[in-house]
């Protein structure tokens, strides 16, 4: 007795079902990648002002509630902040009392190199707008990134963000430490 062949399933609506699902996922999907400026907060201290840093090693950046800048005691400008920060963080080899101190560090892959002991101290008012704060952070980050790029170009011949070898990345990060310190907030008046 011949087995009766099962009738073929009609697959014509398969496409419709798939379309339905596809449209659902198309609508719900979000393809945004989160980007941002990454920073590390300092651990809490009980008594601030414990650590004394020599004055020549600190670049004070203040932002007031009207979003105006004060860099190193003088009114500053966002357009020049990067260059000021970059010059400040560039190690000077014959010691210059008007510039931050330099110390020799031994770093794998780079050997003995001078690194700056400078610290950029960023202080903002409670009334500073977040937009301005991010702009300042961005300019400071740009200064450090350019220094890293130069260092990387000198030693490895490629830009910092094109380095693949973890050891090389660590070496550059050691040589150009990102030292942006945020002062303990002080409440001056309200808002």
């Amino acid at each position: 007795m011949a087995r009766r062949a099962s009738p073929e399933i009609n697959a014509g609506s398969m496409a419709d079902i798939a379309f339905l699902l596809l449209i659902f996922f198309l609508v719900t999907t979000t393809m945004d990648v989160d980007t941002g400026i990454t920073r590390r907060l300092p651990p809490p201290v009980d008594q601030p002002d414990d650590v004394k840093i020599k004055e020549r090693n600190v670049l004070n950046v203040l932002v007031n509630k009207n979003d105006r800048l004060m860099v190193d005691g003088k009114p500053g400008d966002l357009a020049t902040l990067k260059d000021v920060a970059k010059r400040f963080m560039t190690p000077v080899v014959p010691d210059d009392p008007s510039r931050p101190e330099t110390e020799m560090k031994t770093i794998d892959l780079l050997g003995d190199i001078p690194t700056s002991k400078g610290v950029i101290s960023l202080k903002n008012d409670r009334g500073t707008s977040y937009d301005m704060y991010i702009n300042v952070q961005n300019e400071l980050a740009r200064a450090f990134n350019e220094l890293k790029d130069e260092m990387s170009q000198n030693y490895f011949g490629v830009k910092f963000d094109q380095l693949i070898d973890e050891d090389k990345i660590d070496a550059i990060n050691d040589a150009v430490p990102v030292r942006v310190s945020e002062a303990e907030p002080e409440s001056i008046g309200d808002k």
Binding site: T35, Y133, K191
Partner: peptide, 23 residues
């Protein structure tokens, strides 16, 4: 304004969440 952001950052410091990202 930065005031509220600073407050949140202080709380994060106290809570030990040190890695932050300004989106």
């Amino acid at each position: 304004k930065m005031g509220v952001v600073t407050d949140v950052k202080q709380e994060l410091r106290k809570a030990g969440a040190f890695r932050i990202n300004y989106s």
